[in-house]
Structure formats: C-alpha cells, structure tokens
Design a protein around this nucleic acid. Structure first.
Length: 572
RNA sequence: CGGGGCGUGGCGCAGCUUGGUAGCGCGCAUCGUUCGGGACGAUGAGGUCGGAGGUUCAAAUCCUCUCGCCCCGACCA
C-alpha cells in the first residue's frame, strides 16, 4: 500500500481527549477515529490490526474444533424474555421497536440465540458435542465508557459456545478454551493472567477471566506472592483469622462527637480499626434495603454481598433519606435498631467480640457490641474485600493486589439458558436432557488497545509481527535527487505486491522530507523499517531498522526482496 | 446518575474577566528552493465561535435552556 493513497492522516499534536497511550497513539497514527462516546471507526490500518487479531483467534479456536458462523445483532425481545434477561438487565441493553411495533433489542451477547438454534437443530445426543463461534458486534450501553478503546459501548467480540451432553463434556470444552486462550494471548504479545471470577449476570458455575495487568484496569486481582493463586477480588475469599476470644462486655453508649468515619472513631476511642464495626447501607436492584456490617479495617465487597443475598439487578449505595426513613443514621450507622432492612454481617465480624458500632444516633456509638447477643443478623457471610498482605487461600503466603483489564473470559453456563429455552436432546438412555453450554468471549478492540499498551514507546506504536497491519514500512529518501532511489524502492514495492497480497509493505512514496517520513514510520509502528536512499545504496543496499530495538543494518536488495516475497522470515 | 472540566477552521490553543469588524501555531492548497530526522520563502483557501432563546445599538464574550465530549465516582462484563 502506498502511503500517498492510504486513507489516513497522522496528527502532530496529541488529541486533547486522549489520555491512555493506546488511545492517543491509535488516534495520532490514524488507526481509529471516534464517532461518539464509546463508539469508534476503525480506519484501514486499525481494521487490518483487528483482522489480524481475529485471525489468530480463529486459528486457535479452529484448532480446538470450533466452527465459525454468524449470528444477528438485532434480536426479537421475546427471545430475551424467554431467558428472563430482558427483565434482569437494565438500561445497558438497547431496546427499540421495529415498524410493526415489535419489541427488539441490540445484542449484548448471544447465549439466547445459540440456545434458540440448539432447540431448533439438535435432536439427538449423536449431534453433540460441538463448539460454535462468531465475530460479531455487541452493543452495551455502559453508563460510562472510558480509556479510549479499552471500554467502549459498541465493539466486536469473538464469542464461542460449547454445547455438550453433560458436565464432563462441558469441563473438557472449558479447559480446551482455557488452553486456546493461553495460546491466543501469547501470540498477541499479551501477558494474560487467568483468574477465577464471579459468574455475574451470565449465571453458571465456574468462570475465569484472562487479565492484562495495567494500572488503569478496572478490576482488582488478588495474586499470591508464592503460589499460582489468582482471583478477581470480587470473589477472593477472606482468610483472616478470627481474633482471640474475649468475654463479652456489657454494651455501653458513648458520646463520640464528629466521628463519622472509622478512622476518626478509632482515633477518638484510642482503639485499632479492627475493634470497630462499619455499617454500609445499600439498596438492591430488587428493592431491598441492606445494612451490611464489615469490620472497620475492611471494605465491603459488593459482589460478595450481592451473591450472599442473591440480589438481582445489582446494588447501589443508599441515599440519605432512605437511611433516615428506616431510623438509621449515616456516620453513626448500626445494625442495632435497623428496621425494614436485611442485615448482612461479615463472617469475621461475627467472630470478633466487643466491637464499637454506631448507635444510629448522631454523635453516639455503642461499645462492646456482639453479634448474637446484641443483634441477630439475617445473613452471615464473607462480604469483605481481601487486602494486600492477607493470607493466600491456597498456600497461606501473602497476597498482593494488582489492577487488571479483562481481555477474555470463559464461563461454565451449564443449563442456565437451555432449560428456560427448552433446548434438549434425546439421550442414549431414551430420556430428554438439557444441553450443557459454556460461553467464551474475547473483545477484539480491547485486545488491540492492550497490545498497544504493552507495545509502544515514546515515538509511537511498536507492533508485534503477529498483528502488525503490514510487516514492513518502506521509506524512500531523496528520491528526487537520485533516480536510483525511486527505482529500487519501486522495485521492492513491486516485488511485495507481486506475491499475492499487494499489501505486504507500506510504501512511503509521499513527497515529504526525510524527517516527516521517519517520524511517521516510527509512529505507525511496523516491525521493520526499510530505508532506501543514496546513502544506503552506496553502502550496498537497503537500511533495515527493527522498530522494537532500533537495531539498524544494511542488507542487500536480494535479502530484502526475499523478505518482502515471504521467502525470508526477517529482512535482517 | 453524582462531582469536576471542556466545546472557537482538520489538530492543538488564545480571545470571554471589562460586549465593539475572529486570532495564533501546526496542518492544508499553489509556485519556487530544499531532501538522512517533523525544512524555507511567497501566495492562498478554510470558522453559522456546539445549538436555541434572551439582554443590548452591538454577543465568541453577559443571562437562561439545551446538546455533545473528557476526567473522577457510582455502575457494568
């Protein structure tokens, strides 16, 4: 491809809106353009990267027996009513009516469509198992998109679905995906850590997320310093030992002015935060008011809380008036005196004697509160966040916390969709059984962005060869001074073009100064920069620069030609 | 949804406080010179100042409403 003809432009200045390197560089180098919040166009260069990522995924999924197909983006709402998700999912699902006034939705994912196809097509156990997948657009109206391409509302995802006779089959398909994902991320140049994760709105019994470590990641991972334990903090169990038993002391109200935070309270009382109980007021999506009690030295884990009380529709912090309406007091909140509420107490609180809790009265706390004696929780469960340095649930060593970006996930769905939709097969035993499903996703754009996060420098993009839009960037310098430069450059370009894909090389044939061409070549980030100039010709051929290392050498025209024709792995 | 910020030519920005003919850098076009690290000169094109309403003799500037985008949080896979 000649740069003089490529649909792109590079920007000298950083766009004001772009903060993350991936966002900034992909905009500046002319790979993508933003259309709206969380909605992007892929320009030809960006599209080629995306297609190459797609190809890596395709190859590895085909290798585990995946069959590629395509499912629609627009679905009848009835299908989502059948699974129940039409009612469970909030405004993040786009809903509209067609001209005949039928309710329609934009696909957020495709479990329903798969289950619908299964009930239509699968009759016998002989047709199982199989894995189907597609690359398709999803729309999720996230309340907030951020970080450029990392978190968008419209995106292409590879989603695959395993369909099995039983749990054992699902298990095999699940781990086959696990292995395929490991190979995919390796090939993409992404260090991906598989972590155990919450099953979330997908339901199911087992799930892993493949995480790319990044400070801007929205998930917190719990990683063991010693062993290979790795989990999303949303589900990492708390392993903190119960404090030593104490005799319960009489409960006592104390005046504690202006101590609306745990820190202020602990300082005022002269006690460690671990001797306090913190009340967090939440409202569930299904309308319940929750008083969650964790120890003062811990934070509430909303995912654990959600699971502990089987809340649907998520959870939000309660508003002040909602708290007051139930006779409780923000800043001095307490389970004692809670009414019209679900009281959920963290397991560790239940084992910690004589804690200082709020009195539900401004300026007052209660000393020596004890679960069971002073109040009776509706639920006792592990609802607190693991902290850095806590003990690993696996080996007991210290855990560390890191932020991560989810670049892929695998879920054991089981029969969560096939039962409600009636996707069954007739087994060898002559009985009807629901098909057992798994669901596995990888977001293309997010992976592209993470590849950039992992592979760039101050000059620009540095694509791994596996996903680079072109293997090489050919730069002609001083073409109007020395006709041989044009001659050789054109000859190299023709050699690349002649071997099938006319796009083996990006050829900067523009009438630009050397500085512009070099700067753009580095910004665009092809793995090899091939410079033809009077100087290189005098030295015996083409100057070959490896983008990643900056290593330069002069190579013969024959050698470079062999590379461009695919006969040599590298030009140097 | 809460908090904060920003909308002025393709990109980055000034002008707004104190109303008075819309500016700068880069980019773009043409010509010439240049050609191994974002060249130089000359000439030129390009903007309903996000939108609507209002105040005023006069609005980019003041007021009201509204739309959009970014960041933090809530939220979400």
């Amino acid at each position: 491809m000649r740069l003089s003809n490529l649909f792109f432009t590079t920007l000298r200045d950083d766009p004001a809106d772009a903060e993350m390197p991936s966002h900034r560089l992909l905009l500046r180098a002319g790979y993508v353009r933003q259309l709206g919040a969380g909605i992007y166009s892929l320009l030809p260069l960006g599209f080629r990267v995306s297609k190459r990522v797609e190809q890596v995924i395709r190859e590895e999924l085909n290798a585990i027996g995946g069959q590629e197909m395509e499912m629609p983006v627009v679905h009848p709402a009835d299908l989502w009513r059948e699974s129940g998700r039409y009612f469970k999912i909030g405004p993040e699902m786009a809903r509209f009516k067609d001209r005949a006034d039928r309710d329609m939705v934009l696909a957020m994912t495709h479990e329903e469509v798969v289950a619908d196809l299964l009930r239509d097509i699968v009759r016998s156990y002989r047709q199982l198992p199989f894995i189907i997948y597609h690359f398709q657009t999803k729309f999720r109206d996230e309340p907030r998109s951020r970080g450029g391409l990392i978190r968008v509302r419209e995106f292409v995802m590879k989603d695959s679905y395993s369909c099995d006779r039983d749990e054992a089959g699902l298990d095999a398909a699940y781990w086959a995906h696990h292995r395929a994902y490991t190979r995919i991320f390796e090939r993409l140049g992404l260090k991906a850590i598989p972590v155990s994760s919450d099953v979330g709105m997908m339901g199911g019994s087992l799930a892993h997320e493949f995480m790319f470590l990044h400070p801007a990641g929205e998930d917190v991972l719990v990683l063991c310093e010693k062993c290979d334990y790795a989990a999303n903090r949303q589900i990492a169990p708390l392993t903190v030992a119960a404090p030593e038993a104490e005799d319960p002391l009489p409960m006592e109200e104390v005046h504690t002015p202006e101590t609306t935070t745990i820190d202020a309270l602990a300082t005022f009382m002269g006690i460690p935060t671990s001797k306090t109980a913190k009340a967090v007021f939440m409202v569930t999506g299904d309308g319940r008011f929750v008083v969650a009690i964790v120890r003062g030295d811990f934070e509430l884990n909303e995912t654990k809380l959600t699971n502990a009380i089987k809340a649907t529709g998520g959870m939000r912090p309660a508003q002040l008036d909602e708290i007051l309406a139930r006779g409780m007091q923000a800043g001095y909140g307490s389970p004692i005196g809670a009414r019209d509420s679900v009281v959920v107490v963290d397991s560790l609180v239940a084992k910690s004697p004589n804690l200082v809790a709020g009195a539900n009265k401004p300026g007052y706390h209660l000393k020596n509160t004890n679960v069971g004696r002073d109040y009776t929780p509706d639920v006792v469960a592990d609802i607190a966040n693991v902290r850095e340095g806590d003990a690993c649930p696996n080996c007991g060593s210290r855990v560390i916390l890191r932020n991560g970006i989810e670049i892929g996930n695998i879920f054991k769905l089981g029969t969560d969709f096939t039962v409600p939709l009636g996707a069954e097969y007739l087994g060898e035993d002559g009985e009807r059984h629901p098909i057992v499903m798994g669901s596995y996703g990888i977001g293309l754009g997010r992976n592209v962005a993470c590849i950039v996060e992992a592979h760039h420098d101050e000059k620009g993009l540095v694509w791994p060869a596996e996903v680079a839009p072109y293997p090489a960037h050919l730069v002609a310098i001083g073409a109007n001074k020395d006709p041989r430069v044009t001659e050789v450059a054109e000859q190299l370009y023709a050699a690349a073009a002649a071997c099938g894909d006319a796009s083996q090389v990006l050829y900067d044939d523009r009438n630009e100064s050397p500085g512009v061409k070099f700067t753009d070549a580095e910004l665009l980030g092809m793995p090899w920069i091939l410079t033809v100039s009077s100087r290189s010709l005098a030295a015996g051929g083409v100057e070959v620069t490896e983008r990643a290392t900056g290593a330069r050498s002069i190579q013969s025209i024959e050698q470079v030609t062999a590379f461009l024709e695919g006969r040599a792995a590298t030009p140097a």
